[in-house]
Structures are given as C-alpha cells and as structure tokens.
Amino acid sequence: MNSKASNPRDAGTPRPGKELAEQFLNFPSVPLCLCGLLVFLLSSPSALAYPEFQAFVAKSSGRTVNCAMCHANSDGPEGTGPGQIGHLNAAELERLGRARSALQPGQNVDSPILNAFGNHIIKSIGKEKFVELKVSPAHLADLLPPDSDLDQDGIPDVREYLDGTLPINHNDGNPLLLFRHNFRANLVAIALTLAATVCGVWGLGHLLHGLAAASRIKDTED
C-alpha cells in the first residue's frame, strides 16, 4: 500500500524547468535548480497523508482502494499534480490552511486537496478527532453521520467507506445494494419497458402466424 501512496510524478523534471532545459540542452541552469527547490519546499513539509485508513479499508473490504476515496488526487496530497499541494495557488493554499485548522466538527471545510467525502469527514467529526482515529480506523464508521449519502446512490457514505467503494461516485457501490436502490427508483421505466416488450413480442408473434397462414393459403390456391 505504501508504494501506492508515494508519488512518482514529483520526481520527474520539474515543469517550469522544461523549456529552459531545452534552451540549455545538456547544461543545467541555475533557474532550473531554483524551480526544483521551490517545488521541493512546497511539497516536502506536506507528509500528512493517512494511509492507516486506506490500509484498513483495503483489508476489511477486499477491494483495491487508493487515496482518491478522500483526496482530490488518487496519488494523495503530496506532489505537483492537480489536486496536490505542489499545484495549489495562493487562494487555494489559504483554503487549505483554513481546512487544516478546522479542529472541531461543524465548520465548513473546503480543502483543495480533499474531495467531497474528505471534506465531509473533517466537517462531521473535526480534524482533532480524525487524527485521534488513526489508531482505530474502523471507528470512523461509527462517528460519521449514518444517513449522509453524498452521491445519492442509495448507499450511505459510512457503508461505502466500509465496502471500499467511492462515496462520491453513484456508479460505484456494492452491486446488490445498487441494484435494489436503482430498481426501486426506475420501477416505472421498467414496468413500461416490460409492457412494451410483451406487447411487441405478442404482436410480432401473431403477425408471423398470420403471415405463415396467408402464405399457406396462397400455396393451396396455386
């Protein structure tokens, strides 16, 4: 699991340096190093991911899980990709700071490195409680509001967390539970389709019977 949490992307050539690198070809330049340093400074103090939860969910559900369950980027918050700390602008950094100081529950959290479910967790139980839960990730399920369903797929977030499915994707969930919910929601469409199919098959069947009989009559007349 640890290998997943690591981020290979920030090790590549730092982006701003690429054009420069083209100019200077095999000649490493001072600006390039500075850019690398900047990226490093932005990204290195951010080792604040919580792989304990990921490990727990993966083990208890048997499904593959990655950081995208709670984070904006599937490789976690570290790095320079979209939704990672190295990619934030000033306004987003400020939002991040506010989110990180939401120690008590009930504050409106909008962290740029978290997705809707991640923000929902911090909003519901507060950062302080969340950090405490690192030692017993299973308890997160008891503390989250039991009825909240962010993606409206009929499966509460808590259940999706334990199942290792994405709480913010209505196409992802325990197939049986999804079936039950969608079947109820689409009952009218299913009934109408059933009626149309029965009607059509019945009609086509009789039409073919009629055709066969008509061609028999034609044969006998000939």
Binding site: A196, C199, G200, W202, G203, L204, L207, L208, H209, A214
Partner: peptide
C-alpha cells in the same frame, strides 16, 4: 392473427 399483431405492435 393480423389484427392481433397490428394491435400488439401498435401498442408497443
């Protein structure tokens, strides 16, 4: 049969 067929297909 034709009538039933027409009715069924018209319904569908």
């Amino acid at each position: 049969d034709f009538i039933k067929g027409a009715v069924g297909i018209a319904g569908a």
